[in-house]
Structures are given as C-alpha cells and as structure tokens.
Simulated assay, not measured.
Amino acid sequence: MTPVRATTDLAGLLRTRRSPRRMLDGAPDDAELERLLALAMNVPDHGRLRPWRMLVLRGTARDDLGAALAEASGDPRQAAKALRAPLLVAVVLRPSQHPKVPEWEQLATAVAVTTAFGLLLHDQGWGSVWRTGPHLEAAPVRAALRLADGERLLGFLYTGRPAPDEGGPRPQYDAAPHLSVLAPAAARPLPVGGTDR
C-alpha cells in the first residue's frame, strides 16, 4: 500500500523530514526506487563518475545480513537489526582514480545522492533512516553483500512505512553560530618611503 504523499515543497520536506524509530510493513517497489534514484542522481557529481551504487535487500536477504552482523559482532542479538525495516538499501562507495576528482569529492557525491534519495522517499510518504554501525567493514558483512575490493559500505537506508505516531514539530534551529562571513583583509599600510618589504 502506497502511503499518502507528503509534500513537493523542498522547504516543507526539510522541515518535516524525520528518522523514524519504528517502521511498519510496506515499502517502495523496485520500479519506484529506480525512478526516485534517477531523480537523486541530479546532485553535483564532478566528472559524472557516479562513484556509488545502491544494493536493495528485502525478505530473506535481510536475514543473511543479520547473520553476518551476528557473526561480525559475536552477538546473536545483532541479527535482529537487519529486520527493523521491510527494506534496506545498502549505500556503497566505489571510488575510482581520477586526476581531477579526489576520493573525498566522490564520497561527497555518494552522500549527496543518498541524502536526496532519502528526501525523495519522504516526499512519497515513505520513512527512511540512514544507519551505520561498527561492523560495516567486517568481513562477514562484506561477504554477505558481495562487495568488491575497493568498495566501501557507507551504511543502510532503512526504509518503510513510518508508524503514525512518528513525527511532530521540529525545533527551530539557529544557523547563526554555523555561518560566518569572511571580510576582506585590511590593507597593510606601506612604510614611510612607499616601499613594501
């Protein structure tokens, strides 16, 4: 069942975006994911390298991930973490060597597309939470996801239908401490005689 669409206003999307603590059954199908991801790909991407990929986990694929998390942690209770949402989207960075695009820029693109993807899911009424954890680089997790050498797991978008009690007003944030203006440097006065040493 497709949830009620939230809003198409970007400011409204940002004001109402949440990381739901509880997800109910229901998730976007592959066709909807592909459509939204195609829109998210409009984020800045120096060189159009597309240095990322998304890996969709549904059903028993989540069980396989849960088993890998349990093995990596040595704690069987960790397996349940993969079942907190009906759909998980693994975010994978796949950087390439490029003379003009350092890896940090490629990481920035992967983060930007994931953020845009999450906002687009929210616009369609779905909830999503970007989760990481201490075992992203663990061998059992990498093996379960069949990651290639050089690929780096950045976390999972836990996706589903948010519980109806999720949400509520966000605080009004104060941006002033995080925004400053660089004033032009004061001109250094020349010494007597007009020479600058």
Rank of each mutant, 00 (worst) to 15 (best):
A40Y: 08
L55W: 03
A148W: 06
L87E: 07
R62S: 00
P162E: 07
P20S: 01
P95C: 03
V141H: 06
D149V: 00
G12V: 12
V101H: 07
G193Y: 08
N42C: 05
L37I: 13
L120N: 01
L87P: 08
E32W: 09
G155F: 09
M1F: 14
S128E: 09
G167P: 02
R50F: 04
A112I: 06
R94F: 01
G133V: 11
T159D: 11
P184M: 05
A38T: 13
M54A: 15
P76W: 02
D29Q: 00
L83A: 14
V91Q: 05
L39P: 01
P189L: 10
E151D: 10
L10C: 05
G133L: 10
A79Y: 06
L57T: 00
R188H: 13
R161L: 15
Q97Y: 01
H46N: 07
A175W: 05
S19K: 08
R58T: 14
A11R: 05
R152Q: 10
T109R: 05
S96V: 15
Q97M: 01
E103Q: 11
V43S: 13
R35A: 14
S19E: 12
E103R: 12
P44Q: 12
A138P: 01
A112G: 12
N42Y: 13
L37W: 03
V56D: 10
P189I: 06
G194F: 01
L36W: 02
A112F: 02
T195Y: 12
G194M: 11
D9I: 00
T2D: 14
G118R: 09
A143K: 10
L145C: 01
V92P: 01
A67H: 07
H98K: 07
P162Q: 11
W126L: 03
P171L: 11
V192I: 13
R84L: 13
A108L: 12
P99Q: 07
A70T: 01
R21V: 14
G193K: 11
V141Q: 08
D64G: 05
A139G: 04
L49Y: 09
Q106C: 04
G26E: 06
D123I: 00
A72F: 05
A6M: 05
A187V: 11
R53E: 06
A31D: 14
W104Y: 15
L83E: 01
H122F: 14
A90I: 11
D30K: 04
F117Y: 15
A185Q: 03
L14C: 07
G150R: 01
A186L: 13
A80Q: 15
A175M: 10
A11C: 02
T115D: 02
D29E: 12
D123S: 15
T7F: 09
D29G: 14
A187M: 03
E32Q: 14
G125K: 04
Y173I: 14
R15I: 06
P76Y: 04
Q172Y: 03
V91L: 15
L24Q: 13
L154N: 02
P164C: 10
V141R: 09
P20E: 06
Y158D: 08
R152Y: 00
W130F: 13
V56K: 00
V4K: 15
V101W: 05
L119R: 05
P189C: 02
